[in-house]
């Protein structure tokens, strides 16, 4: 069954959409129930200290729903509010959702769109990231799948990147960026010679969705399209669950191998050549189909090693 392809969401750009539009396209129609929605007005108690406006959902929507008939818990960050950053309330909603997932043995889908910790409440945000990681790992240990979707305006940076690295499967579009330090942060701290944040092509080659998919940093590559994200989420929710000794040992070997193979490379293009892509220099321009065809025989995968 693929309800999404018949809906008006089929052509919705994931990148352009807001959190609630993304959920409407991702979930089975009418199946969503929000937990602590905007009507509860649980706003950040800290933004007013900086004379900044609050938002009634603190930039994240969490709830229960169905995807292709299967019950799931879902979260979607709103990248247009404070860059989707993790504050105290925002983070606690996701912590609670993951603790519930463990108790209910219910799979989770997280639509990331975040710059990382919200600096105006930095200590609470940093701690929230850590609590989320602990709750996520405990849920996975209990057999729950946690699927991350990355293709929003704010990307998936800072602590958001660390949380994504704990998910069981990551779905990414070309626009999705996954990284710890953002381009501006590297440039500010280490100089423009280390990273020119205005060089957008460099940003995509270093942390963009295609590069992440090629090195095994993401598992499923999709078009920037809400229906494609839904279809990929359904596939991801059908993958084997698990978090154990064997999987962590496989991840250790996988990440060691990446440094052995590519650790001396300076640029994404060097990595792609090393992988054996015949059109390595053309990767950024390739259509999704052509890219997936190129990637198929050459990319590193993280199957059972994440």
């Amino acid at each position: 069954m693929n309800a999404a392809s018949a809906t008006p969401h089929a052509r919705l750009s994931w990148f352009e959409a807001g959190a609630r539009e993304r959920l409407a396209a991702l979930l089975d129609p009418g199946s969503f129930e929000e937990f602590i929605g905007p009507e509860k007005r649980e706003i950040s108690p800290h933004l007013k200290i900086f004379d900044l406006p609050a938002q009634f959902d603190d930039g994240i929507v969490v709830g229960g729903a169905r995807i292709d008939g299967a019950p799931v818990l879902v979260a979607a960050q709103e990248g247009r509010f404070m860059g989707g950053a993790f504050g105290e309330v925002h983070g606690a909603k996701l912590t609670g959702l993951l603790r519930a997932a463990k108790a209910l043995k219910r799979d989770v889908v997280i639509a990331f769109d975040t710059g990382g910790v919200r600096l105006q409440e930095a200590n609470a945000g940093e701690l929230a990231i850590s609590e989320i990681i602990r709750a996520l790992v405990e849920a996975r240990t209990a057999g729950v799948r946690v699927v991350g979707l990355i293709g929003g305006r704010a990307g998936c940076y800072g602590g958001g990147g660390l949380i994504s690295g704990c998910c069981s499967t990551l779905v990414v579009s070309e626009q999705g960026r996954i990284s710890v330090s953002g381009p501006e942060v590297i440039e500010t701290n280490k100089g423009v010679e280390e990273f020119d944040s205005r060089d957008r092509a460099l940003v995509w080659r270093t942390m963009g969705g295609k590069h992440r998919y090629l090195i095994g940093g993401a598992d499923i590559f999709v078009d920037d399209n809400a229906a494609a994200f839904r279809d990929a989420a359904i596939v991801a929710l059908g993958r084997p669950a698990g978090f154990d000794r064997k999987r962590l040992a496989a991840e250790q070997a996988r990440l060691e191998r990446r440094l052995t193979r590519f650790g001396a490379d300076r640029d994404g293009r060097d990595v792609w050549r090393e992988l054996g892509l015949t059109q390595a220099d053309a990767v950024p321009e390739l259509s999704t189909d052509a890219f997936l065809h190129q990637a198929a025989d050459h990319r590193e995968t993280a199957d059972d090693a994440r």
Partner: peptide
């Protein structure tokens, strides 16, 4: 904070360390 660390996927390496400790 470097281009190389992000090119290699630092988020996965830091997440892996946290997962190993947990």
């Amino acid at each position: 904070m470097s281009r190389r660390d992000e090119l290699m996927g630092l988020s996965e390496y830091l997440a892996h360390l946290a997962k190993a400790l947990l």
